Amino acid sequence: MGVVVDAAIGWLVQSILGNCFTEKLEAWTCTVGLADDVEKLKSAMRYVQMVLDAAKGRKIKSEPLENSLGDLKELLYDAEDVMDELDYYRLQENITNRFYL
């Protein structure tokens, strides 16, 4: 126990919020009916960022809190994977539409 929350987690949140939510991806999620879900994900990411920022650099002495922060970190990686997949499907649809035009 006694884990220190590192800055890499904050970087991951910024990466997801800044790089994954591009204008093109957001426009595409509106056209396929996922805009509300993406907004919920963005809101959750901001909440996670707030919690992790509060814990950053602190030594965590509580095992339940340490486990919860670890779970949040895993959720961030999952969220990044979801955004990558959405962008993949957006690009795939773009290519398919160009092919059939």
Rank of each mutant, 00 (worst) to 15 (best):
E85G: 09
V3I: 07
G33H: 00
R90M: 06
E80C: 04
Q49V: 04
L69P: 02
T29Q: 03
K56C: 05
V4C: 05
Y100I: 10
L52N: 14
D84F: 15
E26Y: 08
S62R: 03
N97R: 14
K73A: 11
R90H: 06
L91V: 12
N97I: 09
E23W: 09
V51F: 02
K61Y: 10
V48R: 09
A35Y: 01
D36L: 03
L72T: 04
L17R: 02
V5M: 00
D53G: 13
A7H: 09
V5S: 00
N19V: 03
M45E: 08
K40S: 04
T31V: 11
R58E: 09
K59G: 02
F21W: 05
V82K: 09
K56L: 03
N19C: 01
A79Y: 04
V38H: 02
V51H: 08
A55I: 03
E66G: 05
D71V: 13
M1K: 02
M45P: 03
E23T: 15
Y77Q: 12
G33I: 00
E26C: 10
D87L: 12
D78A: 08
A44N: 12
E23S: 10
C30D: 11
A79L: 00
D87G: 14
V3M: 05
M50Y: 14
D84A: 15
L25K: 07
Y100M: 07
E63V: 15
E63N: 13
D71G: 13
S43R: 10
R46E: 08
V32S: 01
I60L: 06
V3E: 06
Y89N: 04
G2C: 05
L69K: 01
Q92F: 13
R46S: 06
L25V: 09
A54W: 11
L76A: 00
K73C: 12
M50C: 07
L75W: 15
K40Y: 05
G18P: 03
P64K: 01
I16F: 02
I95S: 09
D87V: 15
G33N: 00
F99S: 15
K61I: 06
D84W: 15
I95H: 11
G2L: 00
E85Q: 14
S43G: 07
R98T: 10
T29M: 04
F99W: 11
V51T: 09
D37I: 14
M1C: 05
K73Y: 13
K24D: 14
C30H: 09
C30M: 11
K42Q: 01
D36K: 07
K40E: 02
Q92R: 08
P64E: 02
D71P: 08
D71H: 14
R98Q: 13
F21R: 00
E26K: 12
G57I: 03
C20S: 13
D37E: 14
L91P: 07
A79N: 06
R58D: 11
T22S: 03
